[in-house]
Amino acid sequence: MFKIVRKEELNPTVKLFEVEAPYVARKAEPGQFIILRVNESGERIPLTVADYDRQRGTITIIFQEVGKSTKLLGTLEEGDELLDFAGPLGVASHLGGYKKAAVIGGGLGTAIAYPQAKKLHSLGTEVDVITGFRNSSLILLEDELKAASTRLFIATDDGSNGNKGFVTDILKKLIEEGNKYDLVIAIGPLIMMKMVSLLTKQYGIKTLVSMNPVMIDGTGMCGGCRVTVGGKTKFACVDGPDFDGHEVDFDEAMRRQAMYKSHEKKSLEDHICRMGLGGEAHA
């Protein structure tokens, strides 16, 4: 069993858990993920490692309450235990040797971009972090990212933080102002990663994206997480989750993400029904 030693609510639907998992904490690196299960009938939920503390033996995960499983996860409190917690899975990001990087996080992707920015920053890379949210109430990890970057830019879709626009607008502006990035990391919704990759391709800037497809085992066994990269099928769990953004077939990835939409809806409705919660399900 894996104890939750810290719980924070980062915004109304995004929560942070720091979980005791000493074996995983010894090995975890930015870019890797874990798989957890809440209870016996639960799904295996893949979540990216948001932070790790080798001394305390803990892994930090950040998740958004979207479907049944993440909502159930969100009901757990400090001191509660997770039934299963396996990792670190996937290939760690290769972050050494870059002079200047732009790290881009969209929505919850910001939580996954954070350890990458932190690592790059600690390696002496000049790091511009660009994050984007729907509105200012959803902004995540502002202080943490300030500490892990040279400059932090935050955009909101509705302009409620005084900076209306998309992450791609800011990135484009920075590039055109003469910032010479030798690496762009983009983590967030598929459409955002696609748009960033299209933009950086024009400028020939190496771009890494982090794929988070549907998967079961996370060890290369099921092949459910197939992603087409450069015309070849890759398994995100063992070949990734980081891939060259200029090579990923995002349109296929977006189609594949819809595979269980109707099941997810049914599962959530059933859950709400049984919990007697009623009301609207907000996905």
């Binding site: 639960g42 799904e43 295996r44 099921c222 099941h263 599962s267």
Partner: peptide, 25 residues
């Protein structure tokens, strides 16, 4: 893959969905 199909059904008990949380289509 047969691995994924069978793992969803046997290990994750997708045949009991939505009583269990893992679906199979």
């Amino acid at each position: 893959s047969a691995n994924e199909f069978l793992t969803r059904i046997n290990l994750m008990k997708a045949y009991k969905f939505p009583e269990t949380d893992t679906p199979v289509r």
